[in-house]
Amino acid sequence: MTQELSLEVNGIPARVEVDADEVLLDTLRDRLHLTGTKRGCDEGECGACTVIIGRTPVHSCIFPSLAAAGAQVRTVEGLAGGGGELSDLQRAFVDTAAVQCGFCTPGFLMTLTALLESEASPSDHEVDEAMAGNICRCTGYSAIRAAVRSVVGEGGA
């Protein structure tokens, strides 16, 4: 059976009917048509589905939608500014070639955005630890590290 869910996604209030055990990833992709958030594993391993709830990155593939009632959810589509300009981190991902196939990119951007919001200048080790819940099969992580470094070097996200 479906239940009503009210939440805020990328600053915009949303009200949708969801299945009682629906996960947030499905609500975002299939009901709100925000397909930037990706499904990679359905078990909270790969991190492609990462969104930010409040200030916290979560795996939306295993997060019950109804547990997000009243929450502020941010997805990759909400990272760019109002005029469409990329965030510093998005820009850095483009410039340091941290994107290859790009399927993991939204998840990494969300995790690392949350990191930079809580820690302005993380060390390489802190960056690696923070993104342990995100898998990239293409890049071998080095360019992603470099992207974060370049943002931190500029004095914060």
């Binding site: 991190g47 916290t56 990155p57 979560v58 995790t111 630890e129 993104m131 995100n134």
Partner: peptide
């Protein structure tokens, strides 16, 4: 326990 996303919730 898992990564940040798991530890956070």
């Amino acid at each position: 326990v898992g990564g940040w996303q798991t530890q956070a919730v």
